[in-house]
Amino acid sequence: MAPRTYGGLAFIAEVYLGSPSIRQYLHVDTGSNLTWTQCFPSSHSFVDHIYPKYSPEDSNTYFDAECETTAKNSTPKFTYYASTGVCSYELTYGDGNLIRGRLAEEMITLQTRNGEFKVVYDVYFGCNDQAVGNQYIGTGILGLGTGKFSIVEKLGSKFSICFGLIMESKPTHNLILGDGANIQGHPTVINTTQGNYMIMLEFILVGAELKALDDPVQVHLDTGTTICHLSGFLFNFIV
């Protein structure tokens, strides 16, 4: 669900973070590995008063993660500060937005398909204390990319998403994480390249005309953006 005016701008997952649990609205992003939320108090917040606020100091299950547990070539990059014992990160997105925070582990609660709730412990997430930019939606990011810090890895390396109509008044989108994920309809082969989900683009439909590419190209599947980015070659091919 997407709270208030954000309907149609992004796919938002409702999850519960910490103990006692605080509801968070996370932007579903297959183009990111790290799940993060805005932590309070913070030096720079983009979240306004309509959202619930997560404070690590109020959670019984929050603890800072150690940098020694991180991968050397991971994204984002992590830096350990001995004076504070904090493993910090900084990440810049493709649109220029920037976030900073500390790597942590926390308990999350997810709703299951039968309406019950499942608790998952020791999930990596970014406790974000600074955000630069104005394109953030919800209270943070639900990172569904591949990699050590992806929540997908924690829940069995499987997920499926069913998209309904983007602008519908009562959303019917479903995100299933873990063993309950399944494939319906005609399957499309998805590869992973440098942590990104990629498919081969063979045809482009322009109006009623189906144009076939002489050489299929790889395209990146990214639910974190509302814009299709085309290379100059593909753009000229369409027009």
Rank of each mutant, 00 (worst) to 15 (best):
P76Y: 03
S160M: 03
E209W: 06
T146C: 07
Y6T: 15
G224W: 04
G178R: 04
G94W: 04
V189T: 13
S83G: 05
F237W: 05
N128Q: 05
E105S: 11
V47D: 05
L17V: 15
H229K: 10
P216Q: 06
F235G: 12
Q111L: 02
P20G: 01
A2S: 15
T69K: 11
I199F: 10
K118P: 06
Y197Q: 07
F40V: 08
K154I: 09
G8N: 01
L9D: 11
M1G: 13
I22G: 00
T69H: 11
G138R: 06
P41V: 03
K53F: 04
K72M: 10
D129A: 02
A208M: 08
V119D: 09
T109S: 06
L165G: 14
M200P: 12
G96A: 01
A208D: 13
D129L: 02
T37L: 09
G18Y: 04
S83E: 13
V189F: 12
F235W: 14
S160N: 04
H220T: 07
S55M: 08
G224M: 01
V28F: 02
I199L: 10
S231Y: 03
I151Q: 02
V120A: 04
G133E: 04
A13Q: 00
V119I: 15
I190C: 07
S21C: 05
P216M: 03
E68Q: 12
A13R: 00
Q184T: 15
Q218M: 11
V28S: 01
I166V: 13
E106W: 00
V132C: 08
G156D: 05
H173L: 02
N174T: 14
N73H: 11
R4V: 12
M1F: 10
Y16D: 09
L210I: 09
G147D: 08
P187H: 01
D122K: 15
L155C: 11
T75R: 11
F63I: 09
M1D: 13
C87H: 08
D129Q: 07
P216G: 03
S74L: 08
P187N: 02
I183N: 13
T226M: 14
L142K: 06
D58A: 14
N236M: 10
